[in-house]
Simulated assay, not measured.
Amino acid sequence: MDSPPRPGRGATRNETPQRFNLQAREADGDWLDQAEAVDGGPTPLRTTVTIERPKTILTCNASPDVPFDRSINPYRGCEHGCIYCFARPTHAFHDLSPGLDFETKLFAKPDAPILLRKELAARGYVAKPIAFGTNTDPYQPIEGQWRITRACLEVLAECRHPFTITTKSDRVLSDLDLIAPMAARGLAAVVLSIPTIDPAIARTLEPRATRPAKRLAAVRKLTEAKVPVHVSIAPIVPQITDHEMEHILEAAAKAGARGAFFLPVRLPHEVAPLFRAWLDAHYPDRAAKVMATIQSIRGGRDNDPDFFTRMKGQGPWADLLRTRFQIATRRLGLNKERLALRTDLFRPPEGDQMRLL
């Protein structure tokens, strides 16, 4: 069931999926806040936050096509509302919709720093870079109140443990006092995700994320603080944002980014129908063309879940994107060196007995 686009929200749907044998549920009553605003449009949805008490905070993976094997997600769900977010289907595990629920019914994990300290102190733990922002944004708006990401960074700073941060928010600058000293030791790097620099596109594609211009300003400020910064053009949406690739790379290089990478849009599980509904609402003139191009990149499907090709795409369109990217990065002097964070400085967190040195 589609509804009109809501102010500051990305999805136009709110069904629960049936992949997990859950009872199907559609947006209804106060769940979607269907009341009409004074001007005749739908009222803005309120954001709620529920405390989650996980038993562990480090998520490990063995995927052969990602550059990390462990990550931390201080929050579940993301208020940024990016319509293409591949993490949306995770809300279905809670009998919630990957649509508007994912953007408005958030979960916070305040025990994260305590759990992190415990896991880093485990016998036999071997330090490797921990990635923040691999599922939902660690600096989404509620971080301003909950400060869970910062608390985790404080633990990592104490232990001299390497980490990377991927975010769409300039709120990352609020933790520069922690990030910059770690970067000086070769223990920290930041990735700013900037899939578009067009404010009009950004308002519907990622409605509550920081404006692209402010993200580029954050790249410059991090660079000035000598923090290694890369820019992620992820995802590239064909027929909507693909023409911006060179412009984004030029802006990133001008702001001081060391490197960049890109990913074609991915539409796993419930993301595909949500994305199609978003196209119908905002780009009805080219919706069919966009999906036809995506399918050409994804082997005739809305989504390709296979390792390696899921990140790169296939076919003439994917080849063209890669060629354009390679030409632009060489011209701009990006990606000259591979970033490698140190792991030899790690020291386990203190227990009941203080360190002598």
Rank of each mutant, 00 (worst) to 15 (best):
M1F: 06
D2H: 10
D2Y: 08
D2N: 14
S3D: 14
P4T: 08
P5Q: 09
P7S: 05
G8C: 03
A11M: 08
N14L: 03
A24R: 15
R25T: 04
A27H: 06
D28K: 15
D30E: 15
D33A: 15
A37V: 08
D39L: 08
G41Q: 14
T43W: 00
T43E: 04
L45C: 13
L45E: 10
R46V: 14
T47M: 03
T47C: 11
T50M: 06
T50I: 13
R53P: 07
I57V: 12
N61R: 12
P67K: 09
F68E: 05
S71Q: 12
P74D: 04
E79H: 05
G81Y: 01
Y84T: 05
Y84F: 09
C85M: 12
F86I: 15
R88Q: 10
P89V: 07
F93S: 15
P98M: 05
F102G: 02
K105M: 11
D111K: 07
A112M: 04
I114A: 10
L116R: 01
K118N: 12
K118C: 08
L120H: 02
A121E: 06
G124T: 08
Y125K: 06
A127M: 01
F132S: 02
T136G: 04
D137E: 12
D137Y: 14
Y139M: 09
Y139L: 02
I142D: 08
Q145I: 13
W146E: 15
I148Y: 00
I148F: 02
A157V: 09
E158C: 09
R160M: 07
R160W: 00
H161W: 09
P162Y: 00
F163Q: 04
I165A: 05
D170K: 11
V172I: 14
L173Y: 07
A180F: 02
A183S: 14
A188M: 13
A189H: 03
A189P: 05
L192I: 15
P195S: 12
P195K: 04
T196G: 10
D198N: 14
A200C: 08
I201R: 11
E206V: 04
A209W: 00
T210I: 02
R211A: 14
K214V: 06
K214W: 01
R215T: 07
K221L: 12
E224I: 07
P238S: 03
P238D: 11
I240Q: 03
I240S: 09
T241S: 14
M245P: 00
H247L: 06
L249Y: 14
A251L: 11
G256K: 02
R258W: 04
L267S: 09
L267H: 05
E270W: 00
L274S: 07
L274N: 15
F275Y: 13
R276W: 10
R276M: 09
A281C: 01
D285R: 10
R286D: 09
A287Y: 04
K289H: 11
V290F: 05
V290P: 07
T293H: 01
T293S: 11
I294L: 07
I297P: 04
I297S: 01
G299L: 09
D302F: 01
N303A: 00
D304V: 00
R310H: 06
W317N: 09
W317S: 06
R324E: 12
R324T: 10
Q326W: 01
A328Y: 02
A328L: 08
R330N: 07
R330S: 11
N335G: 10
E337N: 13
E337A: 14
L345H: 06
P348V: 02
E350W: 00
L356N: 12
L357T: 12
L357W: 12
